[in-house]
Structure formats: C-alpha cells, structure tokens
Lab assay of single mutants.
Amino acid sequence: SEHYTFDGEEQAIRFMRDMEAKNLKYELQIHNGKYIIQVD
C-alpha cells in the first residue's frame, strides 16, 4: 500500500475521486490538518 499526503481538502477530494474512478480502495485519515490517503 502507498500513502499520499495532501495539505488541502480540495486536492484530497480530487485524488479520492480519481481513485474511485479507477476502482481502487483507499482510506482517509486526517492528522494535524493534513489529509493522508492510504491506497491498497
């Protein structure tokens, strides 16, 4: 699995939509205002 970190919500949402379009599962965590997305 890989981790991707985003500072902004818009970037994170765009990335998650992209993952959904590719049928990839992901998990979102928010730490200290950063959006951390783990992709299986």
Score class of each variant (00 low, 15 high):
S1D: 08
S1W: 14
S1G: 12
S1V: 14
S1Y: 13
S1L: 13
S1E: 08
S1I: 14
E2L: 14
E2Y: 15
E2G: 14
E2M: 15
E2K: 14
E2I: 15
E2P: 11
E2N: 14
E2A: 13
E2D: 11
H3S: 14
H3C: 13
H3F: 15
H3Q: 13
H3R: 14
H3P: 09
Y4F: 11
Y4I: 07
Y4R: 04
Y4L: 05
Y4S: 02
Y4W: 10
Y4N: 02
Y4Q: 03
T5Y: 12
T5D: 04
F6N: 00
F6H: 00
F6E: 01
F6W: 02
F6C: 08
D7P: 05
D7A: 07
D7H: 07
D7M: 08
D7Q: 07
D7G: 04
D7K: 04
D7E: 11
D7I: 07
D7W: 09
D7N: 07
G8L: 15
G8Q: 14
G8M: 13
G8E: 15
G8Y: 15
G8D: 15
G8R: 13
G8S: 15
G8P: 01
G8I: 14
E9A: 10
E9V: 11
E9K: 08
E9S: 07
E9I: 14
E9F: 12
E9D: 04
E9T: 04
E10I: 06
E10G: 05
E10L: 07
E10M: 06
E10T: 06
E10A: 10
E10F: 05
E10D: 11
E10W: 07
E10Y: 06
E10Q: 08
Q11L: 09
Q11T: 07
Q11E: 15
Q11A: 14
Q11N: 08
A12T: 02
A12S: 02
A12H: 00
A12I: 02
A12N: 00
A12E: 00
I13D: 09
I13N: 11
R14C: 13
R14K: 13
R14V: 10
R14S: 12
R14W: 10
R14T: 10
R14E: 15
R14N: 12
F15G: 01
F15T: 02
F15W: 04
F15P: 02
F15A: 05
M16C: 09
M16E: 02
M16G: 04
M16R: 00
M16Y: 02
M16D: 02
M16S: 02
M16K: 01
R17S: 10
R17T: 09
R17C: 12
R17E: 13
R17M: 14
D18C: 12
D18G: 04
D18I: 10
M19G: 03
M19P: 01
M19V: 06
M19E: 03
M19H: 03
M19A: 09
E20G: 03
E20H: 05
E20K: 05
E20N: 06
A21C: 07
A21H: 08
A21Y: 09
A21F: 09
A21L: 11
A21R: 10
A21Q: 10
A21N: 10
K22H: 09
K22R: 10
K22M: 13
K22A: 11
N23K: 09
N23A: 07
N23P: 01
L24E: 05
L24Q: 08
L24W: 08
K25V: 09
K25Y: 09
K25T: 09
K25M: 07
K25H: 11
K25I: 07
K25P: 08
Y26V: 14
Y26R: 00
Y26S: 04
Y26H: 03
Y26P: 06
Y26D: 00
Y26M: 06
Y26E: 00
E27P: 00
E27Y: 12
E27Q: 12
E27C: 11
E27K: 13
E27I: 13
L28A: 04
L28E: 01
L28Q: 02
L28D: 00
L28Y: 10
Q29Y: 14
Q29G: 05
Q29I: 14
Q29L: 13
Q29A: 09
Q29E: 09
I30N: 03
I30T: 05
I30P: 01
I30G: 01
I30S: 03
H31D: 09
H31R: 12
H31F: 11
H31P: 00
H31V: 15
N32Q: 09
N32L: 07
N32Y: 06
N32V: 03
N32R: 05
N32M: 08
N32T: 03
N32K: 07
N32I: 03
N32A: 08
G33A: 03
G33W: 01
G33K: 03
G33S: 04
G33E: 04
G33N: 06
G33F: 03
K34M: 11
K34Y: 09
K34I: 11
K34A: 05
Y35N: 00
Y35Q: 01
Y35I: 05
Y35F: 10
Y35M: 02
Y35V: 03
Y35G: 00
Y35H: 03
I36P: 00
I36W: 07
I36A: 03
I36E: 05
I36F: 10
I36H: 11
I36V: 10
I36N: 04
I37C: 01
I37E: 00
I37L: 06
Q38Y: 15
Q38N: 10
Q38I: 15
Q38F: 15
Q38P: 01
Q38S: 14
V39W: 05
V39F: 07
V39T: 05
V39Q: 03
V39L: 09
V39S: 03
V39C: 03
V39G: 02
D40F: 15
D40Y: 15
D40K: 14
